[in-house]
């Protein structure tokens, strides 16, 4: 097969490997959905074909080796590869067809929003309780008795955590309370799991509705103790702008 085809193939493979394995490991990144990777590969292939067919000569140079390969004119070791490709293509099509028509054993996908938007009245509230050592200590005491059974030592690994799905939040994780405002925590603690909107899947959350057992002032103190114990600081409007 001519070198004119090797480079597009290598380029496509590299782009796939980059999207599949390198991108998820970049800072602040996440694994890409396979549908998005497929879309990128299609765009890459389309670009390659457009580039290769800009002129009659380049078009012949691009498709010539493909046609010769498919018709068996290439000869040599490529003859075996030709039979392999001709045999694998129908099998791949069959496998894809089976995969898209067979029923899956996987439970329904759950697109739970972990930090849904709170109701308007809980947006932008500031903690009215003075941040004194006594108040922080009092909040930590409440945390120990009410929150630690599930949230543990601020790490989400309390003795009561294993049976619950979704698992209790790990406050030491920088993606939980460190990226939230105190007003969000106030809403979540006060209204509990049943206060979540539909995208938060409230029917699964074991977070109690603490407004039935704690005063607002106590909840603000718990928030103070929580941030202090986890070694985190609440996100503020100043930092977010």
């Amino acid at each position: 097969m001519g070198g004119v085809l090797v480079r597009p193939i290598i380029l496509t493979v590299f782009i796939y490997l980059f999207l599949k394995f390198i991108v998820p490991n970049l800072p602040h990144s996440a694994p890409l959905p396979s549908s998005l990777i497929f879309l990128y590969l299609m765009l890459t292939t389309a670009g390659i074909v457009i580039f290769a067919t800009l002129s009659g000569a380049s078009k012949d140079a691009f498709f010539g080796p493909i046609f010769r390969f498919l018709t068996g004119e290439s000869g040599g070791a490529l003859s075996s590869a030709r039979y392999l490709v001709l045999a694998l293509f129908p099998l791949l099509v069959g496998w894809q067809t089976y995969g898209s028509t067979a029923s899956s054993d996987a439970p329904p996908a759950e697109n739970r929003t972990i930090h849904p938007a709170p109701p308007g009245e809980y947006t932008g509230l500031s903690n009215p309780v003075p941040k004194t050592p006594d108040n922080i200590m009092y909040g930590k005491g409440l945390y120990a008795s009410r929150c630690s059974p599930c949230h543990g030592n601020f790490d989400g690994k309390g003795f009561a955590a294993p049976g619950f799905t979704p698992p209790p939040a790990n406050f030491k994780d920088p993606t939980t309370i460190a990226m939230l405002q105190e007003s969000f925590l106030f809403w979540r603690i006060k209204k509990g799991g049943v206060g979540l909107p539909v995208e938060g899947m409230p029917w699964k959350s074991a977070m109690p509705r603490w407004e039935l057992e704690l005063s607002d002032e106590d909840i603000w103190k718990v928030i103070m103790g929580e941030y202090d114990g986890a070694g985190q600081k609440p996100r503020t409007w100043d930092e977010s702008e």
């Binding site: 209204k191 049943v194 206060g195 979540l196 909107p197 539909v198 409230p202 029917w203």
Partner: peptide, 8 residues
């Protein structure tokens, strides 16, 4: 138990 924003 009743949920605040979802009819359970």
């Amino acid at each position: 138990q009743p949920m605040a924003q979802v009819q359970g």
